[in-house]
């Protein structure tokens, strides 16, 4: 199939970007989206033009590196999948495809489709953990955990930190990402001792990073490649409320 691409090109953080058009020719429908870009890049290099920069690593939908805004949707038209899991059979011969980086104040563009998501790491460093040092942990079976609790913690823990939720949100809120971590740990007995401190610290850092606030559009969960459910946000709100009440006492 042949495709018409409009790709955001931006030399670096400081420069102004613009769309540049390319043709992707004779692409097999079994090609993945990133492989299609590989093909385009190979041709660009041969012509002496700089290839399109984009983040990627595992190409299996688990590392969270990749992420592009494709035809107005974070990670493209397929639900429940990261950009690297998208295949060209999701498009038709002759389609035009617009490819942009994540757009959010807290995620500045580094080059072309590559953005800086280090804000997520700083939120994690603020409280996204259970404080246990290596060694001295009790036997793993010492605390039985009901299967349903473990499963619901897992549903939240599946987040890959890609940032699509931020990109999809009109306010560029990071609430789904933060809630996923808070819910993962709050739903397990191991995470309970630090729950108040954790939620306060993570939310404070999130606000410092310049993410917008949540107005319940649910765009985040709809575009999340791991389909992190909206109920994690309810968990976060509850945790935050309880923590707030306790600290004001």
């Amino acid at each position: 199939m042949n495709l018409h691409l409009k790709v955001w090109r931006q030399k670096n953080k400081e420069s102004k970007g613009k769309f540049v058009e390319y043709e992707a020719k004779e692409i097999s429908p079994d090609t993945s989206f990133l492989e299609m870009l590989d093909v385009v890049n190979e041709e660009l290099i041969k012509k002496g033009e700089e290839p399109i920069a984009f983040d990627h690593d595992c190409r299996e939908g688990i590392c969270g590196s990749c992420g592009m805004y494709i035809n107005g949707r974070a990670h493209g038209p397929q639900t429940g999948a990261a950009t690297c899991q998208l295949h060209m059979r999701s498009f038709k011969d002759g389609d035009s495809i617009v490819i942009e980086p994540w757009r959010a104040k807290a995620f500045p563009v580094i080059k072309d489709l590559v953005v800086d998501r280090s804000a997520f790491d700083r939120i994690m460093a603020a409280g996204g953990f259970i404080s246990v040092n290596t060694g001295g942990a009790p036997d793993a079976n010492a605390i039985p955990i009901p299967k349903v609790e473990q499963e619901s913690a897992f549903d939240a823990a599946a987040c890959i930190g890609c940032g699509a939720c931020v990109a999809a949100c009109k306010n560029a809120s990071a609430i789904l990402f933060v809630s996923a971590k808070v819910a993962h740990l709050a739903r397990l007995p191991q995470g309970k001792p630090e729950r108040e401190k954790r939620v306060m610290a993570m939310v404070a850092q999130m606000e410092d990073e310049g993410f917008g606030s949540c107005t319940n559009t649910e765009a985040c969960s709809a575009e999340c490649p791991k389909e992190i459910p909206m109920d994690v946000i309810a968990t976060l709100r509850r945790e935050y409320l309880v923590a707030g009440l306790k600290s004001s006492k």
Binding site: T134, G135, A140, Q190
Partner: peptide, 22 residues
């Protein structure tokens, strides 16, 4: 054996049986 203990303490959600054990 220590690894599994450590990971569970960190909150790694390993698969469990209905009785709650790993």
């Amino acid at each position: 054996v220590n690894i599994i203990d450590q990971c569970v303490a960190q909150g790694v959600p390993f698969a469990r049986e209905y009785g709650g054990l790993l």
